[in-house]
Simulated scan of single mutants.
Amino acid sequence: MSFTTSVPRTVALAMTGASGAQYGLRLLECLLGADVQVSLMLSRPAQVVIGMETDLSLPGRMSEIERFLTARYGAREGQLRVYDREQWTAPLASGSSPPDAMVVCPCTTATLSALATGASRSLAERAGDVVLKERRPLILVVRETPLSEVHLENMLKLSRMGAVIMPANPAFYHKPKGVDDLVDFMVSRVLDHLHVPNDLIPRWGDAQEPHE
């Protein structure tokens, strides 16, 4: 799988029940701010984690969540589409209408396993399967530690298929002042791989003092 250097017009974003909801929400905000069309898939566990880890209280129905997030992030009308776990009529479920790229953020090891085996038990898993078979970019922001042999084998398998395995491992060389800076580091790395311009963090060397 090869990445193009053009900014994607459409991105599928799946948020699963791993810890790290802040990563997915910040990524959503940045993609919408970059005028990218986003198809968002929220698992039930993801909605629970969002409620636990953030100050957001999402509505119950996907149509209501779509309106809520569109207003919250100032997206244009129709720029964001939110899909249910089993909404099989969604364009994402077919190879005739794949997104330019897909990100699972955060990604559970259960989702990792399903993608590695082609299980396709949910729309998010099917969308990932479509992206892989259509040779589109797939980025998996895995959030788990430590990693078992099963996890590592699944990562290797997916990497060999062309997926980018990007564990949620924020760095500290940009001297983060808080959690938001750590979140922005990871989101910036995802955006870089999507070729979406961003200035969320200082680049390595930009603010380094010269050695004496």
Score class of each variant (00 low, 15 high):
63 S>V: 15
81 R>V: 00
174 H>C: 10
67 R>V: 15
21 A>W: 03
33 G>R: 01
81 R>G: 05
89 T>F: 07
100 D>A: 05
70 T>A: 02
30 C>H: 04
207 A>Y: 04
196 V>P: 13
197 P>F: 10
198 N>G: 08
188 S>V: 06
28 L>K: 01
58 L>G: 08
84 D>H: 03
154 N>C: 03
160 R>C: 06
209 E>F: 07
14 A>F: 02
113 S>I: 10
107 C>R: 09
107 C>I: 12
22 Q>E: 12
211 H>R: 12
102 M>A: 15
47 Q>H: 07
119 A>G: 02
137 P>E: 05
171 A>S: 13
69 L>T: 05
208 Q>F: 06
155 M>L: 14
161 M>L: 12
41 M>D: 02
16 T>K: 06
68 F>W: 07
182 L>D: 06
181 D>P: 03
155 M>W: 13
150 V>T: 13
20 G>I: 08
135 R>K: 15
170 P>H: 06
133 K>V: 10
143 R>A: 05
210 P>W: 05
117 T>M: 06
106 P>I: 10
150 V>P: 01
158 L>K: 10
153 E>K: 15
47 Q>T: 13
169 N>K: 12
3 F>L: 14
185 F>H: 10
136 R>N: 10
143 R>I: 04
91 P>A: 01
141 V>W: 00
109 T>N: 10
176 P>F: 11
162 G>V: 09
106 P>E: 11
146 P>Y: 03
190 V>Q: 08
10 T>H: 15
33 G>C: 01
79 Q>E: 01
74 G>K: 00
189 R>V: 07
153 E>S: 14
176 P>R: 11
120 S>L: 04
92 L>T: 09
19 S>K: 05
91 P>D: 00
115 L>F: 03
51 G>W: 08
24 G>Q: 09
63 S>P: 04
39 S>N: 01
39 S>H: 00
195 H>T: 14
80 L>Q: 01
126 R>G: 02
191 L>N: 12
147 L>C: 02
77 E>G: 00
22 Q>P: 02
10 T>V: 08
146 P>L: 04
199 D>W: 06
8 P>A: 01
